[in-house]
Amino acid sequence: MRFKVNDEPVELPEGSSIDDLAKANNLPEKGVAIAVNNEMVPLSQWKGKVIAEGDDIIIIRAVCGG
């Protein structure tokens, strides 16, 4: 299954969840936020949110800034 994370192509097995994506990339639970197709998915729903073919995923994290 192919989809996009921050406009980069990514591939994971069929049926993978957001939580699987986070674990595969060692994302911390704090300081990040994930949206699927411009809908923010809260941490509590990462496990239940299954990624679909062609999904557009955005992952952001806290950085310094004014």
Partner: peptide
């Protein structure tokens, strides 16, 4: 603070 898109696979310092 600000936000930016992560680039997967790059370890980044946790500024928080």
């Amino acid at each position: 603070l600000a936000m930016k898109r992560v680039s997967l696979g790059n370890a980044e310092d946790d500024m928080l």
